[in-house]
Design a protein around this nucleic acid. Structure first.
Lengths: 243, 243
DNA sequence: GCCGTGTCGATTGTCGACAATCTGCGCGTC
DNA sequence: GACGCGCAGATTGTCGACAATCGACACGGC
C-alpha cells in the first residue's frame, strides 16, 4: 500500500512500527496457506516466536481483524477466519460492484490514460502467460484490477477495495486452481480493454462483471482442499500445535 | 451493532472490553462535535482523563483509525480526521453505489418483506416530521437506509457500509443543516418506496441515487462552520462523563 | 442421575515503567 | 544572517508483570 523506496542501495532497517511488520508477517502466513482457517493465533506464542512483546502482537492482530482475515472474540482469542460459500459469494459480488464503479469513474476522468496503462498490463500478461509463468500472470492480473481502482481517483474506494481484495487473496490461497482455468480468465481482459478503448462504458462494465463472475465460478467449483502438505506444523513447533 | 439485552431489570455492568467503551466515548465525542478536525488525541491525556491505562486507549484509537474517523501517523500522534470537499464527494458517491447494490439485492431476495419494513419506517418518519421532531426523523432516516443494507443479507456489505456511514455521520455533525432543507429530503423516501412496491427496480435505484445526491448537495452547500464554542477542554472531565 | 458450585489451566485484558522517535529552539560556526 | 548541530520536551512505541475472564472438569447435595 505505502512503501517507501530506498534511495540508494543500502536498504536500511525497517523503521516501520513493529505492529506493521508483525501484521505483514501474519498476513503472508495466512495468505500463503501456512495457517488454516479456524486455527488459533495465540498472542503469547506469536510474541515469543517473533521475539517481541505481546503489545505489538495485539495491535497487529487488531489490524488483521479489521481487514477480516482473523476473528477476535473477547477473552477467547483470535482465530483465522473460515470461509463459507456465502463468504465467497459476498466477496466477489461486492468486488464486482466496486470495480464497475471504479471503471465508470476512471473512464469519465481520463479514459485515454486508463487505456494506456491497461494495455501495457495486458500485453505483459499475455507475454507471461505464453511463457507459462503463472506467478507473474497473477501479479499482472492484480495490477490490472488495481489500476482500475487507482485511476478512479477515489481514496475511500481504494481503501475499501483493498480490504475486499485481501479477502480475494485469502480465497485464492485456499483453492488450488488449474492453470488452464486461469488461462481463460487471462484472455478475458482483452475484450474489456477493447470496450474501454471504444468508449463503450456499458459494454466494458458488463464484460468486467462477467470476468469477475467467471473467476468466482471457477473458485466456487474448485476443490477447497489445499489441506495438509504445508499446512500446520512443518518443522518443530509451528504455531498450530494447539488445535 | 451487537448489543446484549438484559434479561431482568438489573442492568449489569458493562462487561465489554475497555477499548470498546473508550472507542464509543471518543466516537460520540467526535460525532457530537466536541472535537474539531485536526485536533490531537493524546493517549496519555485521554487515559488519565478516563482513569484508565494507555493500552486500551491505544487500541480504541486504532479502532477509530480503521473506521476513518481519526488519522494516526507513527510517532506523531493521532488527530481527528479533517474533511475535504473531495472527502464528502467520495463518501456520498460510494454510499450511492453500496445502497443501490443493496437495494437491487434486497428486492431480489424478498421484495415484500422489504416493502413492509420500509413502509413502517416511512410512516413513522412522516409522523415525526409533522411533529417537528427532527431528531427522530433523522433516526428513522438512518433506519431506512440501514434496512436496505440489512435486507440485502450481505455481511461484508453491511460491514463496509457501516464504515462509510460513520463518515456520513461525521459530515452531518460538522454541518448544520436547515430543517426545511431536511424536509425535502424526508419526502424523497416515498417515491423510492413506491417504485419498490411496483417492483420497478430500475426506477427505485435511480430515485435512491437521486435522493442521496440531493443530500450530498445539501451538505456541500451548507456552511461547514460548527466551529469553536465547545471545542477542546471546556471544564475538566468532558471526556470522562462519556459513559 | 442431575444440577449447581468450586477449582484449575490457559488465554486475553489491563497496568505502570522504560525506550525510541519526532519537533522546535538555542547555540556556535562560517 | 544562514546553516548545521545538539539538546531538551512531549508523545508514541515497546516491554514485562499482574489481574480478569473463559471453558472444562471434578465434587457434593438433592
Amino acid at each position: 500500500m505505502d512503501e517507501r523506496k530506498p534511495q540508494t542501495n543500502l536498504t536500511g532497517v525497517d523503521t516501520r512500527p513493529l505492529r506493521q511488520q508483525i501484521a505483514d508477517a501474519l498476513q503472508s502466513a495466512i495468505l500463503g496457506g501456512e495457517m488454516k482457517p479456524g486455527e488459533a493465533l495465540v498472542e503469547t506464542e506469536i510474541a515469543s516466536r517473533l521475539g517481541v512483546s505481546r503489545a505489538p502482537v495485539r495491535e497487529a492482530l487488531q489490524l488483521l481483524a479489521n481487514s477480516g482475515l482473523v476473528e477476535t472474540v473477547p477473552y477467547r482469542g483470535t482465530t483465522v477466519r473460515a470461509l463459507s460459500p456465502s463468504d465467497i459469494e459476498e466477496v466477489y459480488s461486492l468486488r464486482t460492484v466496486l470495480e464497475t464503479f471504479a471503471l465508470r469513474r476512471a473512464m469519465a476522468r481520463d479514459g485515454a490514460a486508463l487505456v494506456l496503462e491497461l494495455r501495457a498490463i495486458c500485453d505483459a500478461m499475455a507475454l507471461h502467460a505464453a511463457a507459462g509463468d503463472w506467478a507473474k500472470v497473477s501479479a499482472e492480473d492484480e495490477r490490472f484490477h488495481h489500476t482500475l481502482i487507482a485511476r478512479a481517483d477515489h481514496r475511500l474506494l481504494d481503501h475499501v477495495w483493498s480490504e475486499v481484495h485481501v479477502r480475494v487473496r485469502q480465497i485464492m490461497a485456499l483453492r488450488n486452481l488449474q492453470n488452464d482455468d486461469s488461462m481463460t480468465v487471462v484472455y478475458n481482459h482483452f475484450p474489456i480493454l477493447e470496450a474501454i478503448e471504444d468508449g463503450d462504458g456499458e459494454t466494458a462494465r458488463r464484460r468486467l462483471a462477467d470476468h469477475i463472475a467467471t473467476a468466482a465460478d471457477l473458485v466456487a467449483s474448485s476443490d477447497g482442499a489445499a489441506e495438509g502438505a504445508f499446512a500446520t506444523s512443518d518443522t518443530d513447533s509451528a504455531l498450530a500445535a494447539g488445535r
